[in-house]
Design a protein around this nucleic acid. Sequence first.
DNA 1: CCAGTATGTGAACAAGTGTTCACCAAGTTG
DNA 2: CAACTTGGTGAACACTTGTTCACATACTGG
Lengths: 240, 240
Amino acid sequence: MFTQMKKSRSSKPSGGLQAGKTAYEEIVTRQDRKLRTRDSLMDAALTLMSQGRGFGSLSLREITREAGVVPTAFYRHFRDMDELGLALVEGSGLTLRRLLREARKLGVPSKDIIRSSVTIYKSYVEENPRYFLVASRERLTGSPLMRYAIRTEVNHFINEMAQDLRDLRLIPHLSMESLRMICGLVVITMLNAASDILDLPAGQPQAEQELVDNFVRQLTLIFLGAGQWRDPSGPAADAR
Amino acid sequence: MFTQMKKSRSSKPSGGLQAGKTAYEEIVTRQDRKLRTRDSLMDAALTLMSQGRGFGSLSLREITREAGVVPTAFYRHFRDMDELGLALVEGSGLTLRRLLREARKLGVPSKDIIRSSVTIYKSYVEENPRYFLVASRERLTGSPLMRYAIRTEVNHFINEMAQDLRDLRLIPHLSMESLRMICGLVVITMLNAASDILDLPAGQPQAEQELVDNFVRQLTLIFLGAGQWRDPSGPAADAR
DNA sequence: CCAGTATGTGAACAAGTGTTCACCAAGTTG
DNA sequence: CAACTTGGTGAACACTTGTTCACATACTGG
């Protein structure tokens, strides 16, 4: 998880390729080790959350236990649980934005493309359940701090999506504000679907199909509405 | 239900003794008392949740403390926290359905009526924050048991709403299945808005107005889409 | 009116919690 | 090389947790 930075750190400015430290033994700098346990702490939290627990109900000791580390080690990385929570949000937000940005680039919304996007989205959720856990669950329940952080991430995401939609010029008559409103609707629909997907009982292909169909229809309906939408016109930019 | 009675336990066991039971003291049957403390337990949980905590992070002792009762008393009413959670869901579900059913009866969806419905909805949320807390937050986070129970309640609600929509014959060309799909979208939008409303910082009329406007627009867009919607024609598309 | 019983009490428990502190070994730096 | 820094350890603390049990009190039904 969250390991994306590790590799780049170890290939340091030393213009040299990794010296003869060789095959099996990876060179481990102190920073490496630190990042590694930090990651395993975050990972442990996500693991526990994916057993159905809310982040708020996790205990520090539980997490260190799951991470295979002594409780006191926690403090070498985070001041308290709140800080861990924020790190989780940030990490998940980054990863999700990257994932979904790629997905969006693949197609433009139209009947069939919505369906294929949904399918892709579903497989993303299933392959990266942990990131979606944070986003879709803790968005509403976490500590006020965490909620606020997630809200910020989600807004980033909405803005990106709106910008993409504008660039695609599929619905060229809409203002950026309207696009954001629409993307907001799309996002809550997506997050809701994510949590549904995560709750799917295994081996129930029918329920699964039904869920996907419903998801597709809801998105289709939204874009149908978007096609009809007229910006709250008015010479005075906005009267309300 | 959920009568808000609290620390009335100041009367000590010794000394005075409750002389005239009939005067000010209401006659209380044993069942009365039982229901009263049961309610105050549920109420205590909701109070704690409205301070921003998730139900899953509440402790039994915390709740009894808030309810002004000794921890052991809890067991006279609920087997464990799960049972309390389910009671909360049921209670909130009932109350919410009643509240919102009335609201829905007041108007049909059209540009201005959506706005007035939203305003009414907002005041409902603000006046009964506790019920909405359970529905909008724990829907995704609670124990699997709780989530399932909430999902059931929400489905009830969606069905009621779809039936209402059908009875109103505003969008007569749609099958019940499509109506449910649309109402599902409306409901997640409503629940999302509820959680936004509950998070509103006090004394920020501008943010408040913005939120309401966005909410109105999203609902309007949904109904705009609904007007364009065509049932997935085909052999398999039927209502039930 | 009295026996019965249901609701609430208080002490006690083993287990788990967050946090502190001194300590150690191993990477880093001069 | 020695000196220093740092991530991780283990014991210890004061506290909270869920749950048990015997016990009291006051409503209840006969």
